[in-house]
């Protein structure tokens, strides 16, 4: 079930005292004077990526427009019908609330909401978190622009090769989701450019993930994909399971996967939210969405998980150690 979060959610407290009511009315009056910005998240609050995007977005739009958030919750409602239903609910909400601009985060919102209902529509859309390419959605439309989510895949593979000079085989371990498969395809292309044999494994459960990780010890290094979609995921449990068996370098592009990865070159979800917010403000200021080109994110962080590297007896060069943030 989709969930609606509003910036004025506090209005639910109708039992507030008369003074509070006056203050709220004042707040409503003030809010109503601002343009309306609807944030449609493909996922749910509590999901690290989505939370980062939301954080960046709200930070940018705070005080500049009235924000309503619609979570499609498609990480947990994986069925196609659920996704489509969530998109319809979002559409209904759009029709009901009449936002001035809609910020849509991640692929499911682009696929199920923008593409089918708002191609070249009047209502401007700003997307973000769309992985790698917008070609499959036909973006940009005249009313759509945004930021593509790219991972520093090439840099990550180059760094791994630098650490494992004779690497020839690499395994990709991710959830069995479309996004992960899309990511894996993208990484595979980069790995091939480096002359590596790339073998992905997609799992749906924690045990499968640990088992696959075990298999991965037979590769030169493992690229750890997102766990979004892996049921029963528990970082502590996973860490306990893999710490004793870790012998190979593991790298990831997802910060939230650093508890179970040794080296991370991770995207910054806030960048997606911030860009989407800036573009939304430009649109609200009169700029046509079509005149703002689609761009890609460019920020990423370097993380090192010393517990796992120590467990694997992996010695990292000083240059890398001095540059990478220690994940705790």
């Amino acid at each position: 079930m989709s969930k609606l979060n509003t910036a004025t959610g506090g209005l639910g407290g109708l039992a507030l005292a008369a003074g509070s009511l006056i203050l709220m009315l004042s707040a409503v009056t003030q809010a109503s004077a601002l343009p309306k910005c609807l944030f449609v998240s493909s996922y749910h609050q509590g999901y690290a990526w989505s939370d980062g995007v939301e954080r960046g977005l709200r930070q940018t739009l705070d005080g500049k427009c009235e924000i309503q958030q619609f979570d499609m919750d498609t990480k947990r409602r994986k069925e196609q019908s659920d996704k489509e239903r969530a998109a319809l609910e979002a559409k209904e909400f759009i029709q009901r609330w009449q936002p001035d601009v809609v910020i849509a985060a991640d692929d499911n919102a682009a696929r199920h909401l923008i593409q089918p209902f708002y191609k070249d529509a009047e209502l401007p859309f700003v997307f973000c978190g769309v992985n790698w390419t917008v070609a499959e959605y036909g973006f940009p439309y005249s009313n759509v622009t945004g930021m593509v989510e790219v991972a520093p895949v090439k840099a990550m593979i180059q760094e791994a090769i630098a650490l494992v000079p004779r690497a020839a085989r690499v395994m990709y371990l991710g959830a069995d989701t479309a996004t992960e498969k899309k990511n894996a395809a993208r990484i595979q292309r980069a790995a091939k450019q480096q002359g590596l044999i790339f073998e992905p494994q997609f799992v749906t459960s924690l045990d499968d993930w640990v088992a696959a990780y075990q298999d991965g010890q037979g590769y030169d290094f493992i690229i750890v994909g997102s766990n979004a979609g892996v049921e029963g995921w528990d970082n502590t449990q996973v860490f306990k399971a893999i710490e004793p068996i870790s012998r190979r370098l593991t790298v990831t592009n997802h910060e939230w996967m650093m508890p179970v990865s040794m080296l991370g070159m991770t995207k910054v979800p806030e960048e997606q939210g911030e860009w989407a917010g800036q573009v939304a403000l430009q649109i609200l200021d009169g700029t046509k969405p079509g005149s703002i080109p689609v761009v890609a994110n460019r920020k990423w962080e370097l993380f090192i998980n010393p517990r796992l590297t120590q467990a694997a007896a992996l010695k990292l060069p000083d240059q890398l150690l001095s540059k990478g943030k220690v994940f705790r």
Partner: peptide, 10 residues
């Protein structure tokens, strides 16, 4: 390259 790097309209 630029399009592949995330600028689809570059």
């Amino acid at each position: 390259d630029m399009r592949d790097a995330g600028y689809p309209t570059f």
